[in-house]
Amino acid sequence: MRLDHYMAACLLDPQAGYYATRDPFGQAGDFITAPEISQLFGEMLGLCLAQVWMDQGAPACFTLAEAGPGRGTLMADILRVLARVPGMLEAADIHLVEASPTLREVQAKTLEHHQVTWCERVEDLPETAPLFFVANEFIDALPIRQFTRTETGWAETQVGAEDDTLRAGLSPATRLALLEPRFALTRPGDIVEICPQAVPVVEAVAARVRHGGMAIFVDYGGWRSLGDTFQALEKHEPVDPFACPGQADLTAHVDFEPLAQAAVAAGLAVSEMTAQGVLLERLGITQRAQALAGKLSDAALEDHIAAHRRLTHPSEMGQLFKALAFVPQGAPMPPGFAPAG
């Protein structure tokens, strides 16, 4: 089967899929995300959302949505910030895009003091109200197709069985229209990955942001996919992605170029792709970290300093993770972001 079909089965099968059967987040899980590292991450994004809401005239009713909300930690931190902005929390209609029943239960406990609506797809979000949308480490979990450039075309990565063991192999090479623009820009042996579901997600979000609001995508990746980034994590360590289907998290680096192109095609203003560390510094994370540090001591202070470094330092998450934002044409760019050149 194609690699994207394999990923979808491993991650989303209703009975045996990775996300359907467990809470994978945190130190006791398989990976840890920025909101679980420190409240600072969510607070900075909350400040960004609040400024855009005010810049756009403080709409009296808007959809506040997060895709792939994990345990609900990021949304909880965002809501704590929005509660300090007069009228904003009252205007927010909170939606979480989450397909996993297991994670919905966790999110409901985290956000028990808020009224929340769940939906399975971004396309199910309200269509007419302004949309303020956040997706942190969401696109990286969407299934990818992977192709290896040959002298004559593209050979697609496929998954098959050999001696009762799953292995990756390559299909016969062929020319593909969707990769024709990349053929002259690559060499034999180069690997290109595409995420078929990513552009439709952006298109659905963009259709709603046209009514007002903003969208922020944060994920690890870069601009114009090149190389094999498909990986599996279990207990915070890399593992063979074909050894135990459904037992490990499967992800790939996000290619931000087609996301930006889809938003531009939808008529929105798009930011430059911005390193997470740069974005958080522009939003004031160091000043907030220093204010919180004054109330801490000993191990708690050491953990706080380490969390700030992990989120922002170029050798940790600061450079590996990138952010992209878009807003309606004519609206001010969100704080922390520069317009795309």
Rank of each mutant, 00 (worst) to 15 (best):
F256D: 02
V218H: 09
L259S: 05
D228E: 14
F256C: 01
G221W: 03
Q247P: 07
V218Q: 11
G267K: 09
L259T: 00
A262M: 10
A232C: 11
R224K: 14
A232G: 07
A260Q: 12
Y220M: 00
V254A: 01
V254S: 05
A263T: 10
G221V: 00
Q261K: 14
G267I: 10
A265R: 14
G227R: 02
D240E: 10
L233H: 02
H253G: 14
A269T: 15
C244G: 11
E234Y: 00
G267D: 10
A265H: 12
H236I: 01
F256R: 03
D255H: 08
E257R: 14
E257P: 05
Y220K: 00
V264T: 15
D219V: 03
L250F: 06
D219A: 03
Q247A: 15
F230P: 09
L226K: 11
P245R: 09
A266I: 10
G222S: 07
Q247F: 13
T251F: 04
V254N: 04
Y220E: 01
S225E: 10
Y220H: 00
V264A: 14
C244M: 13
D219K: 02
A260V: 07
R224M: 12
V254H: 03
W223M: 15
A263Y: 11
E234H: 11
A260I: 05
V218C: 15
A262W: 03
E257D: 14
V218K: 05
L268H: 07
P245E: 04
L259K: 02
W223L: 15
C244Y: 12
A269R: 15
Q261S: 14
E257I: 11
V254M: 04
L268V: 04
A263F: 10
E257F: 13
D228L: 12
G227S: 02
A252I: 00
A248T: 01
V218T: 14
D249L: 05
P245N: 08
P245S: 10
A243D: 12
V254E: 02
V254F: 08
E257W: 14
R224F: 13
H253T: 08
D249Y: 06
R224V: 15
A232M: 10
A266L: 08
L233K: 00
R224T: 15
L233V: 09
V218Y: 01
L250Q: 01
K235I: 00
P241N: 02
P258K: 07
G267N: 11
P238D: 06
P245Q: 08
G246I: 09
A232T: 05
P258V: 08
E237Y: 01
H236R: 08
S225A: 15
Q231C: 10
G221E: 05
L250V: 00
T229Y: 03
L233E: 02
G222F: 05
D240V: 04
D249R: 01
